[in-house]
Design a protein around this nucleic acid. Structure first.
Lengths: 342, 342
DNA sequence: TACATTTGTGCAACCGATTGTACAACTCAA
DNA sequence: TTGAGTTGTACAATCGGTTGCACAAATGTA
């Protein structure tokens, strides 16, 4: 049954009304009488009327689409964020248009361009690893489109941000290692153009120094923190004359890479070397020993980002960018806790 | 600099042309002269013109948005599919609107309704676990919207499908176990309303019988195949008088759950029990021993689905639903291969 | 040279809703 | 009874492109 789409014109004709009245009735305009509203709504139901978002968007200037840019969806961290975003957004009547940059700045730019062309009402984004210049983000603001950055943020005036306290997360992680008796703690750092990785490095350093340990930059290896990077970095560390006895990696993937190399080389975790990651990807609890890591409250972060966007669009022009900082949670598993009987 | 959006009217005025000519020039209409096209395009560039998709969509009836419904994005399998879809779609000028059903039929229905209301040009979907009725899918077809189902498909006339050969995947997996010397092979089956799980069960059964083993339904446990389900199912199997010596799970998550229970109970894998999963989630290579599994060619599946959609919309009305079947790949890891020195 | 085609552009309707304004009918107070 | 205020609906413009058709100019053909 190839249905013909029913429009408000059809409903109007059926009820001897005008389209404008129908439109207002459907949207509960106060000037429309109860009786008319009821009649219109019933007829709409009966005729299986579905509002045409596109037409509404053109006239009203609001598409009710929220654009999202993430580096990659196959990180549980990001897909959980998306889930949080979707949850809040769909409840408020928004559809979500998702794009992935694959951590490439070029993709990010074209994604943003596409979203703006689609006239999204707002953009939530987490910036790609290899970004040097943030002009495309500035353009979003220039076009008066609400922008909320999450996790991998950068300084854009008038953009709200949602992050976890990366400094604290790192600090806690390293402090935990120290409490467990580890003294020579290495760090896999991320690219320092991104604040999150800078903060994690700072947290690492401060935790060491606050506990009377000296910061040693031969123990810090910087990379993109993918699994391969983790293996390469660990191989590099194993060349050192004096090996570290623990590792704090700024990403679970790098930590797993390191774990693999360690196992290959006969190291026992955590006795020979302790490991702590960052992200709390689900697989961290599958591996053996379980990987201690820092949970980043992904879903909550997504919900927050979406809520902030909603507040901004619903606000009465009195908008000021908000910086939200969530407190991460250290998740302790076997990879950093020496067993009793040692 | 709060820019004012430039429209084709602005360009037209600037060049003393009409909007229709500008529109045609931008879209390379054959009737427009080279000279005019050049002038228009240059002016568009100069004025930073961005086409308003919404307006174009309203008149042309094409939004250039492709809707996607997946059970959940935090399965690498599905997020990879999405990546494949995005790759092909964006190259063809489509934006992708993604929704998650969280495996709930109710969400799926509202997602589909939202996508249709957004006037998407097509929908790619993988059905939720608990679906009993597929009327909402039928509605997509009734509304003349191209529908491509992938992986978790169902029989909808005029819907194309892309699946892997689940029967073959299961068959190969079980055959592999038999070749490794296992004889009492259990199976974690999925809900039998979904063809993929039916086919995997059939493959399991046929592989057994073709190799002279008898099918024993006390060794088959059905569930939603999540990690928790895997642990529960394995606990159930361990109650049996005669334990299985291998397990073929229709999902990696259930297999990991089983693995955890086995380890807790002091079983050595694969000596005491072999494990094979299905999906090839990345974590299967992180665990120890690595989990043998069936790779489902996720990204390729996504690309295929998107291509089929494109063919359908670009085709000249001579459309017939296509059933595409990809051949899965058995990925052998430690969980199913007894070590030499046994 | 006259007629048929082709080429290039303009005109105006249109997609389907939203919304400012106009206006008739009704309510109510003085 | 009259004027002010309310209530309920209609009119028509509008959002910004797209597209069928008309038509003049240019080109081609016999």
């Amino acid at each position: 049954m190839p249905q013909v789409k029913t429009t408000i014109y059809d409903i109007a004709k059926e009820l001897q009304l005008t389209p404008s009245t129908v439109s207002r009735a459907l949207r509960d305009h106060p000037r429309i009488s109860r009786k008319t509203k009821k009649a219109v709504k019933e007829m709409a139901q009966q005729m299986n009327y579905q509002q045409n978002n596109v037409a509404a968007a053109l006239r009203s200037g609001k598409t009710n689409i929220l654009g999202v840019v993430v580096p990659r969806l196959n990180r549980s961290f990001f897909s959980s964020i998306v889930r949080g975003v979707e949850e809040v957004a769909s409840q408020a009547g928004y559809n979500v248009m998702i794009t992935q940059s694959n951590d490439k700045s070029a993709n990010e730019q074209s994604n943003i361009a596409a979203l703006m062309q689609a006239q999204v009402d707002g953009i939530l984004a987490s910036v790609a690893m290899d970004n040097q210049n943030f002009q495309h983000y500035q353009q979003i603001i220039d076009n008066q489109i609400p922008l909320v950055l999450f996790d991998r943020v950068t300084d854009i005036s008038n953009a709200s941000t949602v992050v976890i306290d990366d400094y604290l997360g790192a600090y806690k992680a390293v402090e935990h290692l120290i409490q467990q008796g580890y003294r020579r703690i290495a760090h896999f750092a991320g690219v320092q153009t991104l604040q999150i990785y800078k903060n994690r490095l700072r947290g690492y350093r401060d935790a060491l120094e606050d506990n009377g340990l000296t910061f040693d930059d031969t123990l810090v290896v910087q990379s993109h923190l993918k699994l391969e990077d983790g293996t390469a970095s660990m191989r590099q560390l194993l060349q050192l004359d004096e090996l570290p006895d623990a590792l704090f990696a700024a990403s679970d993937f790098a930590a797993i890479g390191a774990m693999q190399v360690l196992k290959e080389n006969g190291f026992v975790i955590p006795e020979d070397m302790a490991l702590v990651g960052f992200m709390d990807e689900p697989f961290t609890s599958f591996v053996e020993p379980g990987l201690t890591t820092v949970n980043q409250l992904s879903e909550e972060m997504g919900r927050f980002a979406a809520k902030i966007f909603l507040e901004q669009v619903n606000g009465k022009g009195d908008f000021v960018a908000r910086k939200t900082v969530l407190t991460p949670r250290l998740v302790i598993r076997g990879s950093s806790v020496k067993k009793e009987d040692d």
